[in-house]
Design a protein around this nucleic acid. Sequence first.
DNA 1: GAAACTTAATTAAGTTACTGATACAGTTCG
DNA 2: CGAACTGTATCAGTAACTTAATTAAGTTTC
Lengths: 171, 171
Amino acid sequence: MPEISELSIAALTRVLEDFTRMHIRLPAGRRLSFTTLSVLHTLAGDGPKRLTELAGSEQVTQSAITQMVTKLEREGLVERHPDPSDGRAVLVQVTAAGAAIVDGRRAERVARLTDLADRLTEPERAAIALALPALARMVELHSAAIGDPPIERGDGEGDSGMDTPRDSARR
Amino acid sequence: MPEISELSIAALTRVLEDFTRMHIRLPAGRRLSFTTLSVLHTLAGDGPKRLTELAGSEQVTQSAITQMVTKLEREGLVERHPDPSDGRAVLVQVTAAGAAIVDGRRAERVARLTDLADRLTEPERAAIALALPALARMVELHSAAIGDPPIERGDGEGDSGMDTPRDSARR
DNA sequence: GAAACTTAATTAAGTTACTGATACAGTTCG
DNA sequence: CGAACTGTATCAGTAACTTAATTAAGTTTC
């Protein structure tokens, strides 16, 4: 016998795809590329990282990361520091200005979602609230499988770093 | 007095950001750009569209769409047809091969989410199932606000068209 | 019904963000 | 110490965009 409320993965997939599109289309104030915003997000969330670590987590080549970090450094959004434990390595750290960009984009998303949630009924909001821990656990299970760092999730996290194609390419 | 289960938008935002990242990083078999996959998804979901409509929904210039559609046409993934109601316009339609790509990527996402959901407890899955309609309604409210077409949602939908940066640029 | 304007698509030239290959400095290991 | 390995930087090339200009069809105005 099937459960009372059987979870339709197909439906879940579609809803998540739609939210992804919503996030992706969020316009950015500054003209930063897709990958660039993702890097800022990662650094703001996980703390300083090596270039090779970033290359792995963003799935671009190490060469691309070097070039991007050079550009971000010129713009004052990240800083390069020598790694005390390995003379070859560089630790990239987000600056206050860089973190502000991440926070700003997060705030836009929160504002948008707040607006939408306000227009739901109270039981609808409650249903989402009750599902959040389970959804968060799916993300956790995924990260664990991928081998990501176990990510401190107290606060000051996030920004999936996504951007519209227009933002990436313009100017 | 606050409700029993108050919905934390901040928490919801973070979870959705994480899912976005999960989707974005999904590797693609073919080497199609970020925007290209998004266009295929839109066409597979909404049916034939004009170039200008696509330019609007994908947030790139019309010129970019023209070039992309030309390339997709060469690869047999879309077809151009004259618009019977307007001699200036062109209707772009996804081919079976194009739809297969969209479906394939959707299937990968479903597989991944299925795997994760299997590792949840039964109450967790039930909680997500109960929240799905509310989440879907948030998406609907968003589309309505943006002015998107009201999207037929029977089946054969989806693929948020997202891709890794690596996929976009390689080869 | 012709002139002026608007809209849809294409074409051309330039920019940017990536890739791949290579060079080189710093580590690790025999 | 020298050989192999690892982390970063550099260089040349490519793909996906941009803006600007062109062509063609449709709409408006008188």
